[in-house]
Amino acid sequence: DYEVGESVTVMDGPFATLPATISEVNAEQQKLKVLVSIFGRETPVELTFGQVSKI
Rank of each mutant, 00 (worst) to 15 (best):
G40S: 04
K31P: 01
F39A: 14
I22V: 12
V25P: 01
A16Q: 08
S53G: 09
M11A: 07
P14Q: 08
E3W: 14
P14W: 07
F49I: 04
G40F: 04
G13L: 02
S53T: 11
K31S: 10
F49W: 09
P19I: 15
P14H: 07
Y2T: 01
G50H: 10
A20S: 04
G13Y: 02
V52E: 01
K31V: 10
V4L: 07
V25F: 04
V36T: 03
D12A: 11
V45C: 07
I22C: 03
Q30T: 06
E46F: 08
F15S: 02
N26P: 01
S7F: 12
E46Q: 06
S53V: 11
P44R: 10
I22E: 00
V34D: 01
T48N: 12
L18E: 05
E46V: 08
Q29C: 08
Q51K: 04
G13N: 02
A27H: 14
D12R: 07
L32D: 00
Q30A: 08
S37D: 12
E42N: 09
V45P: 00
S23M: 15
T17I: 04
L18M: 12
D1I: 14
G5A: 04
T9L: 15
V10M: 05
R41F: 13
Q30E: 09
V4P: 08
S53E: 12
K31R: 12
G5K: 03
S23V: 15
D12M: 09
I55R: 12
P14V: 08
E28Q: 10
I22P: 00
F49Y: 11
F39H: 14
G50W: 10
Q51E: 07
I55V: 13
E6Y: 05
T48M: 11
V34P: 00
G50M: 12
N26C: 11
S23R: 10
E28V: 11
L47M: 06
K33V: 15
S7A: 12
R41W: 12
A16N: 07
L47H: 01
R41S: 13
Q29Y: 10
A20V: 05
E46W: 15
G13I: 02
G50C: 08
E28C: 08
L47K: 02
L47V: 11
F49T: 04
S7M: 15
G5L: 03
D1L: 14
K54S: 06
F49D: 01
T43A: 08
G5R: 03
V8W: 01
F15Y: 14
T17V: 04
G40R: 02
Q29L: 12
E24H: 10
I38E: 09
D12W: 12
E24S: 10
E3C: 11
L32M: 08
K54L: 06
A16R: 11
E24G: 07
A20N: 01
Q30G: 14
G40Y: 04
E46T: 08
P44F: 15
Q51S: 06
P44M: 15
V45R: 02
T21D: 03
N26Y: 13
T9V: 15
V45F: 07
Q30P: 02
A16V: 08
F39I: 09
K33P: 01
G5E: 03
E24A: 10
E3A: 13
V36R: 00
A16D: 05
L32E: 01
T43E: 14
V45Q: 05
G40D: 08
M11P: 02
P44C: 14
F49P: 03
A20W: 01
V52I: 07
T43S: 08
P14A: 08
E42F: 09
P44G: 09
V45K: 02
K31Q: 08
L18K: 07
T9S: 06
V8L: 04
T43C: 12
T48F: 12
P14R: 07
F49R: 03
T9C: 13
G5H: 04
A27L: 13
S7I: 15
Q29K: 11
I22T: 01
F15E: 02
D12H: 11
T9H: 08
S37H: 13
R41M: 14
V8M: 02
E3L: 12
A27M: 13
E46I: 09
E24M: 09
T43Q: 12
L32I: 10
V25I: 12
T17L: 09
K54R: 11
I55E: 09
E3G: 08
S37K: 14
Q51C: 04
A20L: 03
G40K: 03
L32S: 00
A27N: 13
E28N: 09
T48I: 07
D12C: 13
G40M: 04
Q29D: 11
V25N: 02
L35V: 13
E42D: 11
V10Q: 01
Q30W: 05
V25S: 03
Q51Y: 03
K31E: 05
T21Q: 08
S53Y: 05
